[in-house]
Write a protein that binds this DNA or RNA. Structure first.
Length: 646
RNA sequence: GCCAGAGUAGCUCAGUGGUAGAGCACUUCCUUGGUAAGGAAGGGGUCGGGGGUUCAAUUCCCCCCUCCGGCUCCA
């Protein structure tokens, strides 16, 4: 007998060799029907794998990540089987489960192309196969056998993977006519795969290396119930409606022009208002926290970037230097603000008593992003960073770092960004030559970041190889409407630029010392931040950010004069208000202005004129009753105050 | 930059080897109405750009540009 411990700490005894599915059956037939994988001693297993000694057991259903993972991983194998039957000789790369569904990278063979139009055929073959209730079988094999099996098949990608594996750890899984190298786990059979949808097709380099062959990646998703698939597709449709590119066009916030150039956003009046609202708010917060605001040019001499090290690292991939007509000097479009800020630091002597020095700038920078990488406002070639650099003493570093974490959390809270993740980005220990600076400084900086985050009780993930080339960083990531992650705020420790720019301060010993530099942004860039803000709010901005706070809707043209007076009062009180004087019925005016997401609709008719009031309707909520214009003014001012202070 | 798809009116999209259409928006007129679409008329397109095939190309072919989905990259 073996003892099985369940998540609630209860213990039951079973015969050795029992599997998780059998245990589930003994608990309840319904559980047996719903269970998808098992976590045995912390490792995810197939349900049908025998358990031969005492173990902890968690049975994973659809709502558990591990359950979904097995479901989608099995779906990837099912898709592979369908592909193999439709495209004989097709070769397989890798086919994992991902956050939403799965993909498989395949090489259909020379000259053969799989396109969107083929997805439906593949999908139908998958459905056909799934309905046969194929069972997934796990098998341990030796490295030699594995190499033989896949080289006979001509699967060079699989043999490459196998050659890197250790003998004795290799497993294969088979279902129907398909066998794949795989660690598992998988479902017992294809039976639960009731709803199947192939979503898109894309190119992907083999092993993520752009010098290797580009394979065809097919994305799909499956569900145990049709209803869940339908819901998912509805979610994707709704996400499309929240897409910042679409809302930006609808609400006339920003645009792009082929004549101006790709990736160069043009902020229209309303978008510009939102941007300005964010900038002036953040500026007032920064001033309270001891920041000094600076302004620097959009270009800099190429030698500036040679000093900083950026030229050597990124010069070849940047917008190329601009040459002057006479002296033959070369200038670069500013790709970052830090070198300029270093020179401001160097313009005056500094005492240890003056540190930390916090220098902030809403600085517009230009980066030559690859054409295929551009994406709405989230990835552009010209953007304005809410940049700042803290110059501090080594003994102040930890506190400075923590104060920035506080500031970022404060701003995120004001803006209702609750769903973010914090990532500690360290250097890749295997690839140290990618970075500049001494090992000693790197280790010190990495330690400071990890400890500061821990002291702030910030939950972080660690990403090796994601550091900037000059130092490690703490990144704040937020998801867009369809779940793509974007980096917004970042805090980066830098021992390198102070060296290169020979920054110094006078210590209490009257000797020159080197300050440490922290680079930080909160929004990341105004462009990316507004994009994420649009997707999070679906274009319904908080009152304080909304470019237009209210619109006046006269019920008929008879009331336009009174409406004009109300308009004047509101605009004179800095409440940006419009008036809709079209000769449309009130229902139509309400509908049109509701769709523009203007926070307040002010309706004016006979009653209001008689009583000297306005009828207030809140966007998305409906009629709020009547009040005097002056009352409305103080109401709005109060609302805005509440939103940006707590 | 790479793989795949797309580009028709301001927006969302039909359509065709014989130089184009709908809905919304816009303009004018009628209507002067009380909390999510009143009615009528009208203006508006070098069918992304450039070549080619053809008597004729928005439609077929080639190149380029831009956009969408990914990959790589992201100071």
């Amino acid at each position: 007998m073996i003892k099985i411990t369940f998540p609630d700490s209860s213990v039951r005894e079973y015969n050795s060799g029992i599997n998780s599915l059998q245990i589930a059956e003994q608990i309840s037939p319904r559980l047996a029907k719903e269970v998808l994988s098992a976590t045995v001693n912390g490792e995810t297993w197939d349900l049908t794998r025998p358990i031969i000694s005492d173990a902890t057991l968690k049975l994973n259903k659809w709502d558990d990540e591990e359950g979904k993972h097995a479901f989608w991983h099995s779906s990837a194998h099912l898709m592979a089987e369908a592909l193999e039957s439709l495209y004989p000789g097709i070769k397989f790369g890798i086919g994992p489960a991902i956050e939403n569904g799965f993909y498989y990278d395949v090489d259909p063979g020379d000259g053969k192309v799989i396109t969107d139009a083929d997805l439906i055929t593949i999908e139908n073959r998958m459905k056909e196969l799934a309905s046969k209730n194929l069972t997934y079988k796990r098998q341990d094999i030796s490295k030699k056998e594995a190499l033989e099996l896949f080289s006979n098949k001509g699967d060079e990608y699989k043999t490459e993977l196998i050659s890197e594996l250790e003998d004795g750890t290799i497993t294969i899984y088979s279902q129907g006519n398909f066998t794949d190298l795989c660690r598992g786990p998988h479902l017992p059979s294809t039976e639960p795969m009731k709803a199947i949808k192939l979503l898109s097709i894309a190119g992907a380099y083999w092993r993520g290396n752009e010098n290797r062959k580009m394979l065809t990646r097919i994305y799909g998703i499956t569900f145990p119930k049709q209803k869940l698939l339908d819901d998912y597709l509805v979610f994707l449709e709704e996400a499309k409606r929240r897409d910042h590119r679409r809302i930006g066009k609808e609400l006339e916030l920003f645009t792009f022009s082929q004549k101006v150039g790709m990736g160069l956003p043009l902020w229209m009046p309303k978008g510009s208002d939102i941007r300005q609202n964010l900038i002036s708010y953040l500026t007032s917060v920064l001033r309270k926290r001891g920041y000094k605001i600076v302004t620097t040019p959009h270009i800099g001499n190429v030698n500036l970037y040679k000093t900083s090290g950026h030229y050597e690292k990124y010069g070849a991939d940047s917008f190329q230097p601009i040459s002057t007509p006479q002296e033959g000097e070369q200038f670069m479009l500013k790709p970052m603000n830090c070198p300029h800020h270093c020179e401001i630091y160097n313009a005056t002597p500094h005492s240890y008593k003056d540190l930390p020095l916090r220098m902030a700038e809403f600085g517009t920078v230009y980066r030559y992003e690859q054409s295929g990488e551009l994406h709405g406002l989230t990835r552009v070639r010209s953007f304005t960073q809410d940049d700042a650099h803290h110059f501090c003493r080594q003994d102040q570093l930890r506190e400075e770092f923590k104060s920035i974490i506080d500031l970022i959390l404060y701003i995120f809270k004001i803006l209702n960004f609750n769903d973010f993740t914090a990532q500690v980005s360290l250097r890749d220990p295997e690839n140290k030559q990618k970075y500049i600076g001494s090992d000693e400084n790197w280790e010190k900086a990495e330690r400071d970041i990890i400890e500061a985050a821990a002291e702030k009780n910030l939950k972080t993930t660690v990403a090796l190889g994601e550091a900037a080339f000059y130092g490690p960083k703490l990144d704040f990531m937020v998801k867009d409407a369809i779940g793509r992650k974007w980096q917004l705020g970042t805090i980066q420790v830098d021992y390198n630029l102070p060296e290169r720019f020979e920054l110094t301060y006078n210590g209490s010993d009257n000797q020159k010392h080197r300050p440490v530099m922290i680079h930080r942004t909160i929004f990341g860039s105004m462009e990316r931040f507004v994009a994420v803000l649009i997707e999070n709010s679906a274009g319904k901005f908080p009152l304080w950010l909304a470019p237009e706070k209210a619109v006046i809707l006269p019920i008929s043209e008879k009331f336009n004069d009174y409406a004009g007076k109300v308009l004047e009062i509101l605009n004179n009180s800095d409440i940006c208000t419009l008036i809709d004087e079209r000769s449309e019925k009130i229902g139509k005016k309400i509908r049109d202005n509701e769709l523009k997401r203007i926070p307040y609709l002010l309706i004016i008719g006979e009653k209001e004129v008689e009583n000297g009031t306005i009828a207030v309707r809140k966007q998305g909520e409906g009629d709020k009753g009547s009040m005097k214009t002056e009352e409305f003014v103080s109401f709005i001012q109060e609302e805005i105050k509440k939103e940006i202070a707590f």
